[in-house]
Design a protein around this nucleic acid. Structure first.
Length: 423
DNA sequence: TCTGGGGTCCTAGGACCC
DNA sequence: TCTGGGGTCCTAGGACCC
C-alpha cells in the first residue's frame, strides 16, 4: 500500500510554527514579488481569501479580517521540507519525495492497521516538526492522491487520514469524487470530459481504453489503470537529475534599461550555474526569455526568446553569462517596459559524456577551481557574496518585492529565535 | 498602482540517416 | 512515364503538477 502524505497549507503552516501567537488565526503567504496569494490556512480560506488570485484583489478583505500576510520565504520552507522528509523516512519502507510538501511513502508490508499507521505518521511529523499533515492510503499513487483529498474533507475524528482499503471502498469513493480533482486532470481535459458527460472519477474509469488513449495519450490511459487499482509506476527512490534548470523572475518595477536587465540576467545565470554544478551536469543549450507586463494592456507588448547552442557543454558561470548576454542582445528591443527576464539551461549532460571541440579552447581545470571557490564562498557568506562583474551592484533597482518576509529561523544564524525570561 | 516560479511528460512534424 | 521504406533525433507546443 502507498501513503500520500502532504502538509496542510504548507507555507502558511511553516510560518505558524515559529509564530505560536498565530495559532488558530488566519494566515496567507504571497508569491515572489508579493504578487499572488499562494497559500492560505483553513482560517483564511473560511474568510473567502482566494488562493492563486492577485494579492491586491484580496488585500482589503485580508486587512479587514486581520489576516497575517507573509512574503514567501523559500529558505525556511526548503529547510522545513527536509525535516518532514527525514521524519517520513523513519516511518516508511521507502519514500518518494514528490514536491516540497508531499511524498509517497510505501507502507511497511506487515502493517495491518492502516488507519492507525496514518495517525502515527501524523503524530510523529507533528511532534518532530510542528507541521500538520494529511494522509491518504491506497493501492496506487493516483488512488492515494484521491484518498488524501478525501482525508481533508472528513469532518469526524478520522479527519486527515483516509484509507481506500478494498475494492468496494475504491468503487464507492470514485463514484463521488469529481473528475476534475483527479491528479493529472487539469482544466482543459476536464472540459473535454464534461462534454462527454464524464463527471466523476468513476465515470472516467468506465471510458473505453481506445478513446482515452487517443484523446488523452498514454498518460491518460495510465491514469485510468491506476484508478482501477493497477499500479503503473514504482516509487522513485532517488531523485533523478534535472533535465532543465531555469530562473525567470519578475522585476520589482518594470525596466526599460538594457543594462539593468543584463545585470538581472547575469544574476539568474549564476543561480542556475550553481544548481547545475550541484548536480554535476553541463548544459548544452541556453534559452533567454524576455517579457513585458502582459496585464498592462495599454503598454506596447513584446515577448521573445532565443536559444543559444553552446559550442561545448559547460557549467562555468562566466561562460554561460557570456552566451546569455549574446542571447539577450539578440532579442532586446528598446522602447518597451520589461517585467521579466529569464534563462533556461537544457540539454544537460554529465561531464563524462562531453564531446570536446577541436576549435574551442577548454577552459579546463583552473576555471573549474574558480567555480568551486565561488560556490564555497557563497555557501559560507551568503548568496551572491562573490559574483561576476556582470551581475553588478544595482540589485536594488530590479530585485523582486518582499515586504513581509519572515526571518530565516532555521538557516541563518543571525535570525534564530531568542528566548528570554522575565525575572 | 498591484497579477509567481520551476519544473515534467507526451506528441507531431521536420531533418536526417542508411 | 516511373521516384522506397524504416528508422532516429531534435524541437516546439500543449497539457499537467505543486
Amino acid at each position: 500500500m502507498i501513503a500520500l502524505v502532504d502538509v496542510n497549507s504548507f507555507y502558511a503552516s511553516c510560518e505558524q510554527v515559529f509564530r505560536p501567537d498565530l495559532r488558530g488565526r488566519p494566515v496567507a503567504v504571497l508569491s515572489n514579488n508579493d504578487g499572488c496569494v499562494i497559500a492560505v490556512n483553513r482560517e483564511a480560506k473560511a474568510l473567502g481569501i482566494s488562493m492563486g488570485r492577485p494579492a491586491f484583489e484580496n488585500m482589503t478583505r485580508m486587512e479587514l479580517h486581520g489576516v497575517t500576510v507573509f512574503s514567501s520565504n523559500y529558505p525556511l520552507y526548503g529547510d522545513m521540507s527536509q525535516r518532514v522528509m527525514e521524519t517520513l523516512a523513519t516511518l516508511g519502507a521507502s519514500l518518494e519525495v514528490y514536491s516540497i510538501d508531499e511524498a509517497f511513502v510505501e507502507v511497511p508490508a506487515l502493517e495491518r492497521d492502516l488507519a492507525g499507521y496514518g495517525h502515527r505518521v501524523r503524530e510523529r511529523v507533528m511532534r518532530w516538526t510542528g507541521l500538520p499533515v494529511g494522509v491518504g492510503i491506497a493501492e496506487t499513487k493516483a488512488l492515494a492522491k484521491v484518498a488524501n483529498h478525501v482525508a481533508k474533507r472528513e469532518r469526524d475524528r478520522t479527519r486527515n487520514v483516509f484509507v481506500i482499503a478494498d475494492e468496494a471502498a475504491r468503487a464507492a469513493c470514485l463514484e463521488s469524487f469529481p473528475v476534475e480533482e483527479v491528479w493529472g486532470i487539469g482544466g482543459r481535459i476536464a472540459a473535454r470530459l464534461a462534454d462527454r458527460g464524464v463527471r466523476t472519477a468513476g465515470d472516467f474509469t468506465r471510458l473505453p481504453d481506445a478513446w482515452v488513449r487517443k484523446e488523452l495519450t498514454v498518460t491518460g490511459l495510465r491514469l485510468k489503470r491506476e484508478l482501477l487499482g493497477e499500479p503503473q509506476s514504482a516509487l522513485e527512490l532517488v531523485a533523478p537529475a534535472k533535465q532543465m534548470i531555469g530562473t525567470a523572475k519578475s522585476f520589482g518595477e518594470t525596466l526599460e534599461d538594457e543594462g539593468l536587465i543584463r545585470e538581472a540576467l547575469a544574476y539568474y545565470v549564476a543561480e542556475c550555474g550553481e544548481k547545475l554544478r550541484r548536480q554535476s551536469s553541463l548544459a548544452g543549450h541556453l534559452t533567454v526569455y524576455l517579457e513585458t507586463n502582459r496585464f498592462r494592456e495599454s503598454d506596447p507588448q513584446y515577448v521573445n526568446q532565443t536559444c543559444v547552442r553552446l559550442p561545448v557543454p559547460t557549467n562555468d558561470t562566466l561562460e554561460l553569462t557570456r552566451h546569455a548576454e549574446r542571447g539577450l542582445s539578440r532579442i532586446f528591443r528598446a522602447g518597451y517596459r520589461y517585467k521579466k527576464v529569464g534563462v533556461w539551461l537544457s540539454g544537460l549532460v554529465s561531464p563524462g559524456a562531453v564531446q570536446q571541440d577541436f576549435f574551442v579552447e577548454d577552459p579546463g581545470i583552473r576555471r573549474a577551481n574558480v567555480m568551486g571557490v565561488m560556490d564555497a564562498v557563497n555557501r559560507k557568506y551568503g548568496k551572491a557574496a562573490l559574483r561576476t562583474a556582470a551581475a553588478g551592484f544595482r540589485r536594488d533597482q530590479w530585485k523582486l518585492r518582499q515586504e513581509r518576509v519572515s526571518p530565516c529561523y532555521t538557516t541563518r544564524l543571525g535570525e534564530v529565535m531568542r528566548v528570554t525570561s522575565d525575572e
